[in-house]
Nucleic acid binder design. Structure first.
Lengths: 337, 337
DNA sequence: TCGTACCAATGAAACGATTCAAATATCCGC
DNA sequence: GCGGATATTTGAATCGTTTCATTGGTACGA
């Protein structure tokens, strides 16, 4: 088997020194036209491909950035990943993607792997409290940016989305379309996102003296959990029904929608308005297109890379915690009555 | 800034030779207990982390495998990726993931990147016809396995799922539950998956003399496309309605289901049975839980890695095209009447 | 005491790229 | 045709690891 050609083989084949070949690759202007052509021809004929390991050994660092997310299957992260890849490629870096799947062990494996790869920096949506691990990384010169988690600015930079603001936005929208007896569906409240969104909603309610907010705890954040909450509402009957429902994510909202429409008891949005959170692809193609709160995932990914690049370039850059504000997407499910 | 410690620093700190440190790392049995302890202590104190670039430069190859998929957001691929990662880690390799997003340019970038990284091999779900590119790779000693595409066994190994068999399975199931006037929804037929699944369905129909299959072309494979087909069926009225519908994917099926149930004109499965394809997460939580055809994604990912590992180890292994058979998942939407 | 095994530890060479000081070639004006 | 400036090319040194032939020690039997 013919081992892949090295820069030395190219140099021999083109009858030049190895340094010249390297210059053709990295500083084409330093090389005369004639020589350049000869070298490029040799590269082509031998099918030469740079060996990144040697490059990076000499350079002392790689041109890659590590990114560890909780779940690549989650559209939220998929979108963040894509934006990060695009932003990184602008800086001439590639992204090494790791999926921890909410598993601290897998997460640790990726951190180790990325350290061995000498990534320039790490973007991580951490499973639990890994700040100690990350402190260690930082001491070793691997800057880290937390994704979708607010960080103590004295230690790390971070990019996150303001869930309280999102909750406010959703509730405020229901109020502005004339609803007064609101309900919040979500759970368990131990999930930070759930409690923050609820808190935002409560803040909006306080601004309207005649408005009320009832909290309906769900068992998880799935379609089925939403459906059982919905069934419960249907049994209550028209008198007791809220006129606006805010679900902590779109899956719950779709479940609630199924219960309400399936039994033909209530109409959306005439009898009750419904709004979700996350703006997943399905929201637009629900039976009644679902209003939702969209998170600026592209901005998250892009900004994460930019913060990281900043820290890579100047070692003692101060850290920044960037918080994005989500956006209201109005569809038929919260239409005016 | 204190540069990360090298094996040389560890050797000095522990007063041993570099070779000994290397042995502690790679062949612990060759080193005496006392020395091993001293070295490990030094490693710990200096926070030494292996430099993978140097390792791989010396070794001549990396311990990574490249995997390029069409869309990481697609649950099908997400699952394949996860299985591949797990299988690779058993072999002590890591997976570098690339998302081409159906874009030939991005795909080419990843191929280049992975080649520079000297991946051991490449798993790819190709955008178009990249067999020429891949032939080149093969010549340069980078074995390649095609994923979700049947390959000419004389050139490449591949793992794929038998869509014809899946189509047969779906139609056969409808027939076995007593349906006779079937409809196939899907399009455009230029998509191989669509035509294969249709072909399988037609095969099943031929086995039942009194059964018919009508083909309803859809504009794409989305929920909305399904809904417009569904609306068309509703307008036809009860006389003309098929009693079993097979949709080329679950999104279409969900759209059809919305149309039929939303108008309260027809009941599923009493008036018409409905089956989809892919068994996405949503299938189970549809208004009427959707029967579907599940593809063995874990087996795909695992087998892809195994085929690749085989080719990595013995250069001139013969190629194999492994075709998996999908599986029927019965839920309420095709219940017996 | 010597010879033979065997076990541990050593350290130079190699992997393939980049860098940079030094050597050489080319060009210009006179 | 020359001096000096500039442009091009050269090749040894370097990055951090693994490998492996060699050396140094220790134990044992004769």
């Amino acid at each position: 088997m013919n081992r892949t050609a090295s820069i030395k083989d190219v140099a021999n084949h083109a009858s030049v020194a190895v340094g010249t070949v390297s210059n053709v690759l990295n500083y084409p202007d330093r090389v005369s036209q004639r020589t350049k052509e000869r070298v490029l021809k040799a590269i082509d004929e031998l099918g030469f491909v740079r060996n990144d390991a040697a490059r990076q050994l000499r350079a002392g660092h790689s041109r890659t950035v590590g990114l560890i997310v909780l779940d690549v299957g989650n559209p939220f992260f998929t979108s963040v990943v894509r934006a990060a890849e695009d932003a990184a490629s602008v800086h001439g870096s590639a992204v090494l993607l790791g999926d921890s799947g909410h598993d601290a062990g897998r997460e640790a494996n990726y951190i180790d792997l990325f350290q061995e790869q000498r990534v320039q920096g790490l973007l991580i949506s951490p499973v639990g409290d890994v700040t100690e691990r990350l402190d260690l990384l930082r001491e070793r010169g691997v800057p880290t940016v937390l994704v979708d988690r607010l960080a103590d600015e004295s230690r790390f930079s971070s990019v996150s989305v303001d869930d309280d603001a999102g909750g406010y936005l959703a509730a405020r929208h229901l109020l502005e379309t004339g609803r007064r007896r609101l309900a919040f569906v979500g759970g368990p409240t131990s999930i930070r996102q759930v409690s923050d969104r609820l808190q935002g909603a409560q803040r909006a309610i306080k601004e309207e003296p005649d408005a009320t907010l009832e909290v309906l705890a769900s068992e998880g954040m799935t379609v089925l959990a939403g459906r059982s909450v919905g069934n419960m509402l249907v049994e209550r009957g028209r008198e007791e029904l809220p006129d606006g429902i805010f679900c902590a994510n779109d899956l719950l909202a779709l479940g609630v929608m199924q219960s309400l429409t399936m039994t033909h008891t209530f109409r959306i949005p005439e009898d009750v308005a419904l709004i979700g959170y996350d703006d997943i692809d399905f929201a637009v193609s629900a039976v009644v297109p679902l209003s939702s709160i969209r998170q600026p995932t592209e901005a998250l990914g892009r900004t994460a890379i930019e913060l990281l690049t900043g820290e890579v370039e100047s070692q003692n850059a101060t850290h920044r915690a960037v918080v994005f504000t989500p956006e209201l997407v109005v569809r038929q499910s919260t239409g005016k009555v």
